Lab assay of single mutants.
Amino acid sequence: QKPIVRVFLPNKQRTVVPARCGVTVRDSLKKALMMRGLIPECCAVYRIQDGEKKPIGWDTDISWLTGEELHVEVLE
């Protein structure tokens, strides 16, 4: 079983991306966001920890988040 990260996107959409070492959250999600007309710069990404949303940086190595759920939200 490959290491993955589940990602909840705006508009009730979601995707799953591989959690590859040395790849940033930005690079992992860029294609999924672009297909939906979004760019990382207009969004914020969060991980859910103890039921709370914790913001994470787009430059975080995605392999550190293996098995986690991330939420991407459009910044107002």
Rank of each mutant, 00 (worst) to 15 (best):
V74P: 14
V7S: 00
G51C: 08
Q49F: 11
I56E: 09
Q13P: 01
I48C: 08
K53L: 09
M34T: 15
P3W: 03
L33K: 02
K53A: 07
V23A: 12
V45L: 12
R26S: 10
V72D: 00
G67A: 06
R47W: 07
D61K: 05
D27S: 09
D61C: 04
V7I: 10
Y46C: 15
Q1I: 15
T24R: 07
G37T: 09
T60P: 01
P55H: 11
T15Q: 02
D50M: 10
C42I: 07
R14Q: 14
I4S: 05
R36F: 03
Q1G: 12
R14Y: 12
F8E: 08
I39Q: 15
V25G: 00
E68Y: 06
I48N: 07
G67H: 06
K53N: 04
V7C: 08
P3D: 15
I39H: 15
K12M: 12
L75G: 14
S28L: 01
G22I: 01
Q13I: 05
Y46E: 02
K2N: 14
H71K: 09
V17S: 01
P3I: 02
Q49N: 12
T60M: 08
R36L: 08
E73V: 06
G57R: 10
V45Q: 00
V17M: 04
T66M: 07
Q1M: 15
I62M: 09
R47P: 01
E73D: 12
E76G: 12
E73A: 08
W64Y: 07
K12Q: 13
R47I: 05
P3E: 15
T66V: 10
M34G: 11
P10V: 01
G37C: 06
L29K: 00
Q13A: 06
K53C: 09
V7L: 02
P40Q: 14
G51H: 15
S28M: 03
G51I: 13
L65N: 10
P10S: 01
P10C: 01
K31N: 03
W64I: 13
S63T: 11
F8T: 12
V25T: 12
W64K: 15
C43G: 01
K31F: 03
W58F: 11
K30T: 09
R6N: 05
C42G: 15
M35S: 10
D59A: 06
Q1W: 03
P10M: 01
H71I: 10
E52R: 08
G67Q: 07
V7G: 00
G37K: 15
V72F: 01
E68F: 15
P40H: 11
Q1H: 13
A44C: 08
E73C: 07
D27Q: 09
C43V: 08
V7R: 00
W64V: 14
L65P: 02
K30M: 06
Y46D: 02
C42R: 15
D61G: 04
A19P: 04
A44V: 12
F8Q: 05
E68C: 06
P10D: 02
D61E: 08
T24Q: 09
I56D: 01
A19Y: 02
L75F: 05
H71E: 11
L9S: 00
L33T: 03
M35G: 11
G57Q: 14
T24D: 05
N11Q: 11
T15H: 05
A32R: 12
L75W: 04
E69M: 05
G67K: 11
C43A: 07
E41P: 07
R6V: 03
D61M: 14
R26H: 08
C21H: 08
K30V: 06
C42T: 15
G51M: 08
D61S: 04
R14I: 06
V16A: 10
D59V: 04
S28P: 00
W64A: 13
I4A: 02
V25F: 02
I62A: 10
D59W: 04
L38F: 07
V23H: 11
K2T: 03
L70Y: 02
R14D: 13
S28I: 02
Y46A: 12
V72M: 04
G22E: 03
T15M: 09
D61N: 09
V25C: 06
T24F: 02
P3M: 14
M35L: 14
K2H: 05
L29I: 12
C43Q: 02
V17D: 00
D27V: 07
G57V: 08
E73S: 07
W58R: 01
L70V: 14
E52I: 09
I4R: 02
D27I: 12
C42Q: 15
R20Y: 10
D59P: 03
Q13N: 08
R20N: 10
K31C: 05
R20A: 12
D59S: 08
V7K: 00
K2F: 15
K12S: 11
I39M: 13
K53W: 08
D27R: 08
E52W: 04
V17N: 01
L75A: 15
K54T: 09
L33M: 12
C43I: 04
K30P: 01
V5G: 00
N11R: 06
I4F: 04
L9F: 10
L33D: 04
P18L: 15
A32K: 13
G57K: 12
S28N: 02
Q1Y: 13
T24E: 03
K53R: 09
P55M: 15
T15F: 09
A44L: 12
H71A: 09
R36D: 12
S28R: 02
R26T: 07
Q1S: 05
T15V: 04
Y46G: 04
W64L: 11
D50W: 05
C43S: 10
Y46F: 15
V7E: 00
P40K: 10
A19W: 02
M35F: 08
G51P: 07
E68I: 08
F8P: 00
E52D: 11
A32C: 12
L65C: 11
L70R: 00
Q13W: 03
W58V: 03
A44N: 15
L38D: 03
K31I: 02
V7Y: 01
D27E: 09
I48P: 05
G37N: 15
M34Y: 08
I56A: 11
V74K: 15
K2R: 02
P10F: 02
V45K: 00
V23N: 06
K54V: 12
E52Y: 08
M34S: 14
V72H: 00
V5Y: 00
P18D: 10
I56W: 02
R20E: 11
L29H: 00
T66F: 05
L70I: 07
R20F: 12
T66R: 09
P40T: 14
E41K: 07
T66Y: 04
G51V: 07
P3N: 15
D27G: 08
S63V: 05
E73Q: 08
V23F: 08
K12L: 09
G57F: 07
P10K: 00
L65T: 06
D59T: 09
V74R: 13
L65Q: 13
L65R: 11
I48R: 11
K54Y: 07
P3T: 06
S28D: 00
G51Y: 05
W58N: 02
V25N: 00
P3H: 15
E41C: 04
C42V: 05
G57L: 12
G22V: 01
K54W: 05
F8A: 12
G57Y: 05
I48W: 12
Y46N: 14
D27Y: 03
V7N: 00
L70C: 07
D61T: 05
S63E: 11
E69F: 03
L70P: 03
L9P: 00
L65F: 14
D50S: 09
G67S: 07
G57P: 13
T66L: 05
R6F: 03
Q13T: 05
W58P: 08
R20P: 13
Q49G: 10
L9R: 00
T66C: 09
I62D: 01
V17P: 00
V74S: 13
A44W: 06
W58H: 02
L33Q: 02
T60H: 09
V74Y: 04
V23E: 07
H71P: 00
E73W: 02
V74H: 12
M35H: 15
L9N: 00
G51S: 09
V16K: 06
V72S: 01
T66S: 10
P40D: 15
I62P: 01
D61H: 10
V74W: 07
P18K: 14
Y46H: 14
D59I: 08
D61R: 05
